[in-house]
């Protein structure tokens, strides 16, 4: 448990002082300032944490380039550039401080690209990025104020806008994943519609059809563990989410192993890994209290399993996180620790 105490302070610094001081912290250190807590001065600031997340995402990007060719890289670049450009334009237009280089827009772009199929049209990727940045982030007031994970909101928008294109997948190594790539079904779709289960090892290393970032569990794990090592994410959120999915899918598997896939399949396939390590751990859109975080991950895991097994769509990670995002203000309020001696 000393583990948590060590981790919480930097997280709070990052989460709560974000809107107030987004530039380098040096001028603040030179003179006395009056501010609300936390008063802890650490090395961490937004750009430092954000760029660490970007490094953590690089293995996943590289793996997707390995499997799907340069088209994957182009897709990532288009998303990143359009996210950064949208943020810049909006901040200029609203006459706010331009903070495009704090890295958060780059992360949103990368995450959005990683949730898209490799052959997704670039025009569509651009549209999704603009939506994620404009509606998902800046309509709510910018970094630190958004209710929903911007990248997931962008992906949900694209899901509703291009329902056919976003479910057209390509087989790995099928050349320049463009118009004539061999189309294939994702492991989750195979499970849902055909009753086939893809071998776990393929899922782990990523040799399956799917979105850029949902193929290789290994690459995501490397990035996630790197962030955990730096102490920028706590263990509760990703492991809790995965454990919740394992638990609930285990119940169904136990009930009928023939029609429901095994728990390991569920956390290795689809967006579960990416969601657990990079979206559930988002500072802004998840609860800050330990109790709230537990409720968040358990409910999100349950929702993901229910949507996967009984919903119309094969994948439920995106909607499970978005739905739980909406409950975060309430969770934070309900689970607020009582001040010692407080009488309600």
């Amino acid at each position: 448990m000393d583990d948590t105490q060590k981790k919480d302070p930097p997280q709070k610094t990052a989460g709560e002082s974000k809107p107030a001081q987004s530039g380098p912290a040096s001028p603040a250190a030179e003179r006395f300032i009056v501010s609300s807590s936390p008063h802890l001065l650490t090395e961490e600031n937004i750009p430092k944490i954000m760029y660490s997340v970007i490094y953590a995402l690089l293995p996943t990007v590289l793996v997707s380039v390995y499997f799907y060719g340069l088209r994957a890289l182009v897709l990532v670049l288009v998303c990143v550039v359009s996210c950064v450009a949208t943020e810049y334009l909006i901040q200029r237009f609203r006459e706010r401080t331009v903070t495009v280089f704090d890295g958060s827009a780059i992360i949103t772009g990368m995450l959005l690209a990683l949730t898209l199929p490799p052959g997704f049209p670039l025009k569509g990727a651009f549209l999704g990025s603009v939506f994620a940045m404009a509606v998902g982030k800046h309509f709510f007031g910018g970094l630190g104020y958004n209710i929903f994970n911007p990248a997931l909101l962008g992906r949900a928008f694209l899901q509703a806008t291009y329902p056919v294109l976003i479910t057209t997948w390509a087989e790995p190594f099928s050349g320049p994943a463009g118009v004539d790539a061999v189309s294939a079904a994702t492991p989750l779709a195979l499970m849902k519609f055909e009753g086939q289960v893809v071998p776990h090892l393929n899922l782990f290393f990523g040799n399956v059809a799917g979105s850029l970032g949902e193929t290789s569990a290994l690459a995501i794990l490397i990035g996630g563990l790197y962030l955990r090592y730096l102490g920028y994410i706590n263990w509760r959120l990703p492991l809790g989410y995965l454990a919740s999915m394992v638990f609930f899918s285990y119940l169904f598997w136990l009930y009928d192993p023939l029609s429901y896939a095994d728990p390991l399949f569920h956390i290795l396939a689809g967006g579960a890994m990416l969601g657990a390590w990079f979206m559930v751990t988002d500072y802004v859109t998840t609860p800050v209290t330990p109790m709230g975080q537990w409720i968040f991950v358990i409910c999100a895991g349950l929702l993901a399993v229910i949507i996967r097994l009984f919903g119309g769509l094969p994948e439920g990670v995106m909607y499970s996180i978005l739905l739980m995002n909406a409950t975060v203000p309430l969770l934070n309020k309900w689970t607020k620790p009582r001040v010692f001696g407080e009488v309600s």
């Binding site: 049209p121 025009k123 509606v135 509703a160 806008t161 291009y162 329902p163």
Partner: peptide, 15 residues
């Protein structure tokens, strides 16, 4: 032009 299906659905109206 690939039509934006979302615009015909309720979210499109709200947006």
């Amino acid at each position: 032009f690939t039509p934006w299906v979302i615009m015909i659905l309720p979210p499109g109206a709200f947006l």
